[in-house]
Amino acid sequence: MKLLLQIKNLHIAVDDREIIKGLDLEIKSGEIHIIMGPNGAGKSTLSNALLGDPSLDLKQGKIVFVDKNISDFKTEDRAKLGLFMSWQHPPEITGVSLDQFLFLAYKNIMLAQDKKWQAPSIFEFKQKLEQEAAKLEIPIKFLQRSLNVGFSGGEKKKIEMLQLAILEPKLAILDETDSGLDVDAIKLLHQAIKEFKVKDRAVLLITHHPNILDYIKPDYVHIMIDGQIVKSGSQDLIKEVQKAGFKSYVQS
């Protein structure tokens, strides 16, 4: 399996306060990784940093994605390389409809990866979008509405998963995508991840729910405490957390 993402000694600060304090991680194509940790461990900061959030400062270390050092890459260029993040709290953007926005995103990303790629018509694209939306039980009318405006937390998460399905990234970072979902929605999410993870695509799932094993079988589990990965292992690590919580790692 090919090395997809390599994070080396990453230090990330917000307003000079260091949040990520020397983090290493490698993800190969086809793998599912889970990062677990208590609130405030820096999990969301890590995922935002991978996408190049301009409000974060990379103080030290590097991020290599598909053999490119993307540490200084603009956010759009990271997306064009095949990096995707499902947001924990996606913004509501008035007047921007999902179908319009996603059509542009889709064209940008596909063209960046294949110069000879032929864009579909907006009509063809909408058909594709509606098919994917149906799988996630997203009402068609949502696709023309203002992006996320007035959507419930669960609906927003589904819209994120819909974008994942359309944009077909190489690595999907799912930031707390499972939180705030009811049982049925979690089943749909599970299905979406399964469908996404064909071929050589990889998933990095960030969560603080130990119950994750009920629907996802990861290859690796990492425990993140205070800006660092303190322990990595197999699925068994989740069971450990389920029993003892994160406290033991904090003390270690």
Partner: peptide
């Protein structure tokens, strides 16, 4: 800034993202 980052995280350039937000504002 969050809206901009969001749209850019989907492969839109800064200018495309701003245009989209502004056109949404006047919609």
């Amino acid at each position: 800034a969050k809206d901009l980052f969001y749209l850019q995280s989907r492969g839109l350039s800064e200018e495309e993202a701003i245009n989209m937000i502004v056109n949404g504002f006047i919609e």
